[in-house]
Write a protein that binds this DNA or RNA. Structure first.
Length: 500
RNA sequence: GGUCUCGUGGCCGAGUGGCUAGGCAGAGCUCUGCAAAAGCUCGUACAGCGGUUCGAAUCCGCUCGAGACCUCCA
């Protein structure tokens, strides 16, 4: 079998994956800022890296997956202006930031559950690691790479750049960064505009504040990831993931901080997913073009023609390679919905074929077909090893679907395949679809009583059809369709049903 | 303005030098009481222009177009 290769943003090429500690993988993924609702764009990294996590586990690695919750810093609830006349508000009102954070954290967890994303091994919060962050900042000051100014602390990028390569991840030149003359508030107290905040002094009305050696304030954005990744994954760990838009300044700054504190580069493989676009433009709050996950699941958005099941969205994301942009439209999602349905039905047919697997022999009845199936299935691993190409794996599955359906309809003799080929086909479909891709059935789970009722109805319909009483049989089928249950008359005379 | 990326058939989307993915939509057919599903067949795309090469969607150059980052951002 080929070895796993991943695209490393640091080297801009695919590299063979070799963990720092054999058999173990440390993976850190930038989690959500819980100041608002997650949208479709946020779903991509969490699905992408969930699949990577599952795949690494499948390969036998013991993976520690850390994904933070950014719950510190200055933010406001969506749709509400900074009207906080904080000083006059009641104690209850002063607790509000944490309530807000809790609300969106819960919502985020709920969405992840919908997506069938496995919870990370550790999900640290920024507010829970203020001490670690302060300690790290102290170290940076002690080493001469940070300076305090009016209760805030900044990282000295210029100094760092004299000894290290600031910009190597994002491909930026330090000269350009230093001469950037953009006027932004708070720039005045920095030595250099390129410097970034490690600690910010809290203005009087700011609720989220902690005591520090430099006065009351709150941590800068980049330091939390450095502090928490170091704490739980060590000074050097294997994979750091996140969206491409975080490469600069967030990840670049993380590297700088950690490099000073830990005396070495923190991350071996930087992996970045590309953006989800809408009409070719990045989906993002600042573009005012986001579709929230709750809207996606309910269909309640002008751009949506219908509601979409979380599994459809997961499948949609998996149908492209994670480093390409993925253009959203209701139409594209509908295509995914139909595709997933067809693929899943083929998969269910494949599982049911187990009953007939005793008919199989050691020899393939159709050598050519047997070879084709073997090739298509073997390529699953190869494609995944080539920088997690889920799109190609799915394409192969679609190519296998007609074979599977043919076996089921008996237009393809089951003896065409050797027993080993069939069992491999079956097990690899299950492993990939369920264990690695994390997909599951879109239809409702069977209810025992409903199953019994359906058995009865199907029986009655069968009798009617045998008597050529098509008025009755069509009535049953049409009425059920109205309820949302579809009947299919199979080729062998059986009738199958599905809850839409 | 700087840095970078991309431009594939009606839509989405793989693919980085030869073997012309895949999904959805569309057309025809088979099966079927009908329907649905399924199966089979079909469409020969790679922004434009030039170059390298026996051979390019794939490499190089230019032109046009789109986008990302440089500020919070998955």
């Amino acid at each position: 079998m080929s070895e796993l290769k991943v695209y490393n943003s640091l080297s801009r090429q695919k590299e063979v994956f070799e963990p720092v500690t054999p058999g173990h993988v440390g993976m850190y993924v930038c989690g959500p800022t819980v100041s608002g609702e997650s949208h479709l764009g946020h779903a991509r990294p969490y699905v992408t890296f969930d699949v990577l996590y599952r795949y690494l586990t499948h390969l036998g690695y013991k993976v520690r997956y850390v994904r933070n919750i950014t719950d510190a810093g200055h933010f406001e609830e969506e749709g509400r202006q900074a009207e906080d006349k904080i000083s006059n508000k009641a104690v209850l009102e002063k607790l509000e930031p944490m309530e807000l954070v809790q609300k969106y954290t819960n919502l985020f967890h709920w969405a992840m559950l919908q997506f069938n994303s496995i919870p990370p091994s550790i999900e640290p919060t920024a507010t829970g690691h203020i001490i670690e962050q302060i300690e790290m900042i102290k170290k940076l000051i002690a080493d001469g790479y940070a300076y305090e100014r009016n209760g805030s602390v900044y990282f000295d990028v210029k100094k760092y750049a004299t000894n290290y390569d600031y910009g190597k991840l994002s491909g930026r030149k330090i000269e350009d960064l230093l001469e950037n003359t953009r006027e932004l508030e708070g720039q005045g107290e920095k030595n250099n505009p390129a410097d970034f905040a490690l600690w910010k002094a809290a203005p009087p009305q700011h609720i989220m504040r902690w005591q520090s050696p430099w006065g009351e304030g709150f941590p800068g954005w980049h330091i939390e990831c450095s502090a928490m990744a170091t704490k739980y994954l060590g000074k050097q760990f294997d994979i750091h993931g996140g969206g491409m838009d975080l490469m600069f300044p967030h990840h670049e700054s993380e590297i700088a901080q950690s490099t000073i504190c830990n005396h070495g580069a923190p991350v071996k493989y930087w992996m970045h997913n590309n953006m989800i676009t809408i009409n070719g433009r990045k989906m993002g709050k600042s573009y005012n073009n986001v579709i929230k996950l709750t809207e996606l699941f309910s269909g309640d958005h002008p751009l949506l023609s219908q509601a979409f099941h979380p599994m459809v969205i997961r499948f949609f994301i998996l149908q492209s390679q994670y480093r390409s942009t993925l253009d959203f439209s209701s139409e594209a999602l509908q295509a995914s919905e139909k595709g997933l349905k067809r693929l899943w039905e083929a998969y269910e047919n494949l599982i049911k074929l187990q009953l007939r697997s005793n008919e199989l022999g050691d020899m393939a009845g159709d050598k050519e077909l047997d070879n084709k199936v073997n090739k298509l299935v073997d390529e699953f691993d190869e494609f995944m090893n080539d920088d997690i190409n889920t799109a190609k794996v799915l394409a192969n599955m679609f190519e296998l679907a007609p074979v599977i359906n043919g076996l089921k309809d008996k237009t393809v003799n089951i003896k065409s395949l050797a027993a080993t080929t069939f069992s491999k086909l079956q097990s690899q479909f299950k492993v990939y679809l369920e264990d690695i891709f994390g997909l599951k059935s879109v239809t409702e789970a069977d209810n025992e009583k409903l199953t019994d009722v359906m058995k009865l109805i199907i029986d009655i319909r069968k009798e009617a059809r045998n008597k050529k009483d098509f008025v009755t049989s069509d009535k049953i089928r049409n009425q059920l369709a109205r309820i949302g249950i579809s009947l299919k008359d199979e080729k062998d005379g059986a009738i199958s049903w599905n809850v839409e």
